[in-house]
Amino acid sequence: SMGQARALMGLSAQLDEELDFREGDVITIIGVPEPGWFEGELEGRRGIFPEGFVELLGPLR
Rank of each mutant, 00 (worst) to 15 (best):
Q14H: 14
D25R: 02
V54F: 01
L60F: 08
D16K: 06
F53T: 12
L56V: 11
E17A: 12
I29A: 04
G10P: 09
E17W: 10
I27F: 02
R22A: 11
I27P: 02
I27H: 04
R6W: 09
E18W: 09
F38A: 00
Q4L: 11
D25T: 03
T28E: 14
F49I: 05
W37A: 00
L8C: 06
F53W: 15
G10W: 10
E18C: 11
I29Y: 00
G58K: 10
A5S: 05
E39D: 06
A5C: 10
V54D: 02
T28Y: 08
G31D: 11
R61V: 14
M9W: 07
I29L: 08
F21K: 01
A5I: 09
R22K: 08
L8W: 00
V32R: 12
P59L: 06
G10K: 07
I48L: 05
L56S: 05
E55F: 00
Q4D: 04
Q14N: 13
G58H: 10
L60P: 08
R45H: 01
P59N: 05
G10I: 00
R22M: 12
Q14R: 15
G44V: 01
I27W: 13
T28V: 05
G40F: 10
R6N: 01
I27T: 08
L56H: 06
R22G: 10
D25L: 01
W37I: 13
L56R: 08
F49P: 00
L42N: 03
R22S: 09
E41S: 02
D25N: 04
E34N: 09
E34T: 12
A5V: 03
E51T: 07
G36C: 01
I30R: 10
S1C: 13
D25W: 05
G58Q: 11
M2N: 04
E43Y: 07
D20Y: 10
L15G: 15
E41Y: 06
E41P: 04
L19Y: 03
V32N: 10
D16N: 09
G40D: 09
V32S: 12
Q4F: 14
S1L: 05
F38G: 03
E23D: 00
D16I: 02
D20L: 04
D25C: 00
S1T: 12
P59Y: 04
Q14W: 02
P59I: 00
Q14I: 11
D25H: 04
F49C: 04
A7N: 03
E17H: 14
G58R: 10
E43D: 14
M9P: 03
G3L: 07
E51F: 05
F53S: 13
T28Q: 08
G44S: 07
G47M: 02
E39S: 05
G58A: 11
